[in-house]
Structure formats: structure tokens, C-alpha cells
Design a protein around this nucleic acid. Sequence first.
DNA 1: TTAAGTCGTGTAATATAATAACATAACGCC
DNA 2: GGCGTTATGTTATTATATTACACGACTTAA
Lengths: 165, 165
Amino acid sequence: MSLPLANQQHDHNQCIETALQTARQLCQEKGARLTALREQVLKIVWQSHKPLGAYAVMDILAEQDTRRIAPPTVYRALDFLLEHGLVHRINVLNAYMGCSHPGSAHAHNFLICRACDVAIEFETDSLDRALHSSARAYDFEITGQAIELIGLCANCREETDHEAG
Amino acid sequence: MSLPLANQQHDHNQCIETALQTARQLCQEKGARLTALREQVLKIVWQSHKPLGAYAVMDILAEQDTRRIAPPTVYRALDFLLEHGLVHRINVLNAYMGCSHPGSAHAHNFLICRACDVAIEFETDSLDRALHSSARAYDFEITGQAIELIGLCANCREETDHEAG
DNA sequence: TTAAGTCGTGTAATATAATAACATAACGCC
DNA sequence: GGCGTTATGTTATTATATTACACGACTTAA
């Protein structure tokens, strides 16, 4: 199995372009208004594969744009994007990142590297099954989930090994 | 399978007592100092099976004690308790709750009822296996995890059903 | 028994994250 | 154009968490 794109050298502009295109299409289909501001925020969040805090987004927004940007502006845009599945919130980091598979119904599971901060979105049937079977065992109805694994990605572990060895 | 204690009528004083006893023993074994303040905070966190915010803990502490309590006091105590596995942090709620199985090596998975706020700690082999197999697939080394499932517990779902029906 | 060192706690200020409440502007539709 | 709805702007505030430094209590060893 090959490593996820986030861990490889890749043309990230392509990631951004794809994300924006998909977002536009999905919003059009749903009749949701992907306004200039919302698209700008989505693009900022997609600048890298690292989750970005709301205030970081705000700062970048302020740089790109001369007008003064206040927190609600950013949070509203993020809320819109969250609602439509275009970004995810990483709770352990209080941060936001672009969704890699918007549109497709899928669970939101993350591997978060504490060295390089990259967050990798993944899904597996076995995990979903295990989660639902646990919930069933406790007679619990799942309506949302936050699965966040912290650790070291392949790249960073390599570097650490080199330093150590 | 019977419902977890948190969902049943039970003598909660017993929960608290057990938690405190276990904590004292574990700390003694490890040479960690469970000071009066730390024990007091642990007891407060254990007042219920609902995660409690740091500032809520602070308010209760202030009520119990005439001296003024500042945030660092609480956070330091919580940090100590977290370090020694006596409490958990629930990220989706920015809140803390007592650990049901301190001392035993175990993963920290939670079912969080959004109606009654009770959080149930659970563990299953299949979930652990699925998590580790996912991590392996992405060549990722797990060092920490936050598995938080949001939804409705059995009790609350019953009530909702009654209302609806 | 005191001096030095460590660890725990107190205190003030500040950083970071998020929301409330209300005003204004843009858009979509007759 | 006028009207209702949705989006954005603006100010203030709340919620969560940390920094930095001071003080005190206990530990150990000269």
C-alpha cells in the first residue's frame, strides 16, 4: 500500500484546485452558496495538509485582504464548510482542515503527526464495524464521531531514526 | 450485556470512594504525591459521570474553599491527574472526567451522550485491532488516541421515544 | 539546624478559541 | 423597485488555557 498523498512529494496546487472544483460542484448541486469569502477560506484551509486554527485562517485572510476581519466572519465561513462536509474540525488541535473526500458518505478518522502536524484522513470498514459494534454493546446510538490518533508519520519517524542512529 | 454503571441507578458515593482509594494506592506505588488539592480536584471531577470543564471545577473548588482559586491551580492539578491516568480529557467537550480503570493499561474510548452529557469509557479488542491495523496500513506510529463517539445513550433514547410516541 | 534544592501552590497578566447581539449589505424573487 | 432571506460587518464578551514569576513546604545533606 502506498503512503497517503499528504506524506508524499506532490503538486499541492493540484490538491487545492481539485478541492475547490469539487466544492463548487457539490454546492451547486445542493443549492448552497459557496460565496467568495467561503471559497477563500476553503482555499486557505487547503494551503497544506496541516490543520489550521481559526485565528490562523483569520490572519491569512487579513493579509490577503485589506479589510479588517473579525472572528465571526471566519467562524461563519468555517461553519458553512463544516456543514457541507468540505472541511473537518480536529478536536485535539482546535483546528480545521480540508476534507479529502467531500460528497461521499464517510466517517471522519484522522492520523495526526505530532512532529510535522500533518493530518491524514482515513477510513476502514473494520474500524467502522468495531465502532458500531461497541456502540451496540452499550445500547448507544452514534450520531457523530471524532476518531483522532496522535503519533508519528512515516516521514517523521524516518527522520527521528536518522537522528537517533 | 448489562448497561454500564454510569447509565444505571447506583450508589455514586461508592464510585467516588473507590476512585479515591485506587488513586491513593496508585500514587503511593509510583511515588507520586497525591496532595490534598489534587485529591480534592479528583473528587470534584468524580462528582458525576459527566465530564466537567476546568472552570466548572474551579468554581466548585472556590465554593468548597474560601481562598480564591485561579486557573493555573486547577490546570496543574488536572495535568497531574491526567499524567497519572486518573482522569481523562474529553476533547469534543473541553472537559475532564474520572478514569474508570486507572492503573490498567487500556485505550481511552468514549461514548458521549449529547442529551444527558454522561460519558461512558469503554474498550474493545476489535476496536483496538482495527485502529492499529489502520495505522499500520499508513505506516503511522500511534502514541496517543482520542476516540469520542457522540450520540444518545439508552436512557435518553428511551425518553425521546416516549416523547415522540 | 541551617543552607540548598526540588516540588507544589499562589498570583497577575495574557494568550487563544469561540460566541452573542445587533447593524448593514447583497441577493433572489415577484 | 420593494420585500424577504441570507450573508457579512462590527463590537463586545465569554470560555478555555498558558506564561512568568513569587512564595512556601518538604527533603536532604553538610
